[in-house]
């Protein structure tokens, strides 16, 4: 990347890039700043940039009024739970496809991907009715199941592309060394694929955390995740801008941090390995 350009050009590009980037970032910045303002300041006629009376009361108010902790717990349970369950199902499947491929492996992979393309609304009604009849509506485990299934194709695809890069020799060496399948996977494959598995895990926690369709349609008060919780503020009865911002900040901050760490692997995951 060592192109020779004049400092002037570089300053110009830098300025333009930062200006656009900050413009894109401004809604997030707005949340960050407003979360620490008082309600009066947030809706003042002459808007302020930095909080004038820095306050944390919005955060405690959010917790008091609508039990943020409960929804956050649900979000964690669903996103982590569904990802772990997905890995438990996905790692053996990806092992099989990467290391014992058959003529049909490619078709199976494509088919798995195709299930991801089925629009949620196409199956919303039956799932809703099945959940109603099985009493899974508004339960954490019900939502976890759905989340596992909708992210499973991505998990398998990502793992598959990472496993493909591991030389099969090493697994064969393990077999020669007397390792049965369980040991081969647990003691050899998984430790070698730790970076790939970690980014798969991270991306899927992010996707599950941010998933809005099923969490809104299948949960309400009890098992509501943060997406459902935030959505319930679409008409902010009694909850004003600053508190809304505080709630939003709490909902997006952990994921934003995780996203920043995993952005390099993200490209690969989201394009099913088509762009690396």
């Amino acid at each position: 990347m060592a192109r020779n350009v004049s400092t002037g050009t570089k300053i110009g590009f830098t300025f333009a890039a930062w200006a656009i980037a900050l413009l894109l970032f401004s809604p997030i910045l707005w949340v960050l700043l407003t979360a620490f303002k008082t309600e009066a300041e947030a809706i003042a006629n002459s808007p302020t940039f930095l909080p004038q009376n820095f306050t944390l009361e919005n955060f405690s108010a959010v917790q008091d009024r609508s039990d943020y902790v409960k929804h956050a717990t649900n979000s964690i349970l669903v996103s982590v739970g569904s990802t772990l369950l997905g890995l438990a199902i996905g790692i053996p499947a990806a092992w099989a496809m990467a290391f014992a491929p058959t003529k049909r492996t490619k078709d199976v992979l494509m088919w798995m991907l195709s299930t991801k393309m089925m629009p949620a609304v196409g199956v919303l009604i039956p799932i809703y009715l099945i959940f109603r009849d099985l009493r899974l509506l508004d339960t954490v485990h019900g939502l976890t199941l759905i989340m596992t299934v909708i992210n499973l194709p991505i998990i398998i695809w990502m793992l598959y592309t990472y496993f493909k890069e591991i030389p099969v020799d090493i697994l064969e060496a393990a077999r020669m060394d007397g390792a049965e399948l369980y040991n081969e996977i647990v003691h050899v494959l998984v430790p070698m694929a730790v970076p790939g598995i970690a980014s798969t895990l991270l991306l899927n926690v992010i996707l599950a955390w941010n998933e809005a369709f099923w969490s809104i349609t299948l949960t309400s008060g009890r098992a509501g995740t943060l997406t459902a919780f935030i959505s319930s503020f679409s008409s902010p009865q009694g909850l004003f801008l600053a508190k809304l911002s505080a709630a939003s900040l709490l909902a997006i901050a952990p994921i934003l941090l995780m996203g920043w760490f995993s952005q390099k692997q993200l490209v690969r995951g989201l394009t099913f390995g088509a762009v690396k």
């Binding site: 970032f25 407003t34 801008l241």
Partner: peptide, 20 residues
Amino acid sequence: IVISPFFVMPPVAALIWKNG
């Protein structure tokens, strides 16, 4: 900085734009 909006959950994104 540029990638950040992608990690904002849809309802939050919608509410920021709507109210903020």
